[in-house]
């Protein structure tokens, strides 16, 4: 279980959130939703120690996460990468073995076969030798999910994995997430599309510069909470067809 306690992050004096506390449970896919600028990515980066925290601590299995970062796989937003880098699909997946190799060691034959297997898991075996810039957005996202498979971490954090990708890729990534869930891993997904929230996530965290609500998706994904975090208009559209069920 990942536990965040009293985390405060500020950019040039402006707090994004103050004393944020939350826990993510193993064996569950937890979604994080919130409007633009709510601090979703900031929260993830705070957990991973990628940005400076004014206060707070993050633990995994009751020990500081900073000491076991290789046990957390991070699939960042695709836009951040240089896609013209001279590297092919296979070697990109193979970098997933780096966290566990440590210094001075190079990937073994066993690591390479793990990378091949991960590529097969996301149905990209035939693209193994392609330069990464030659892939579509969805294929590329699957490559980074394959890299996370290879890392064999207990926690997997994905930042907006479904943005701008095709349906087939989305379904394949979702099936990998389910597989991780079955294996008892902790999966955290920053998500944008409110329509699929109930279908995808066991637990849900709604944030807007702080936690609006957190818990089982069925309990948390309500008109009230969406109104608080986003806007009344949005929740009216989103929940309009569901009104009869509630009645």
């Amino acid at each position: 279980m990942i536990k965040v306690r009293n985390m405060t992050v500020a950019y040039s004096g402006q707090p994004i959130f103050t004393n944020l506390s939350i826990a993510f449970e193993p064996g569950k896919i937890t979604g994080i939703i919130g409007p633009n600028g709510a601090g979703k990515s900031t929260m993830i980066k705070g957990i991973l120690g990628l940005i400076h925290k004014q206060s707070g601590d993050v633990t995994l299995h009751s020990k500081p996460v900073a000491k076991q970062l290789k046990n957390v796989a991070y699939v960042e937003q695709r836009a951040a990468l240089d896609l013209t880098f001279p590297i092919n699909v296979f070697d990109t997946v193979l970098t997933g073995t780096y966290p566990n190799l440590g210094l001075f060691k190079i990937p073994s034959e066993k690591d390479k076969s793990a990378a091949r297997q991960a590529l097969a898991d996301v149905n990209l075996s035939e693209f193994s030798q392609r330069q990464i810039g030659e892939l579509s957005g969805g294929q590329l996202q699957r490559v980074f999910v394959a890299r996370a498979i290879v890392q064999e971490a207990d926690v997997i954090i994905l930042d907006e994995p479904f943005v701008g990708i095709d349906m087939k890729s989305e379904a394949e990534i979702m099936s990998i997430l389910k597989r991780w869930q079955m294996a008892g891993k902790t999966i955290i997904v920053v998500h944008h599309d409110l329509n699929k929230v109930t279908k995808y996530f066991d637990d849900l965290v709604i944030i807007n510069r702080g936690i609006v609500a957190a818990g089982k998706t069925a309990d948390v994904f309500t008109k009230e909470n969406i109104t608080t975090a986003f806007s009344g208009d949005l929740s009216t559209i989103l929940f309009s067809d569901k009104e009869p069920e509630h009645a």
């Binding site: 991070y74 590297i87 990109t92 990937p107």
Partner: peptide, 22 residues
């Protein structure tokens, strides 16, 4: 030769390298 892997990953995907504690 010794730091090939670290040079590769910090050049290609620095955030990933940071995220695993490099």
């Amino acid at each position: 030769v010794v730091f090939y892997k670290e040079l590769l990953i910090t050049s290609f995907d620095n955030t990933f390298a940071q995220a695993y504690g490099l």
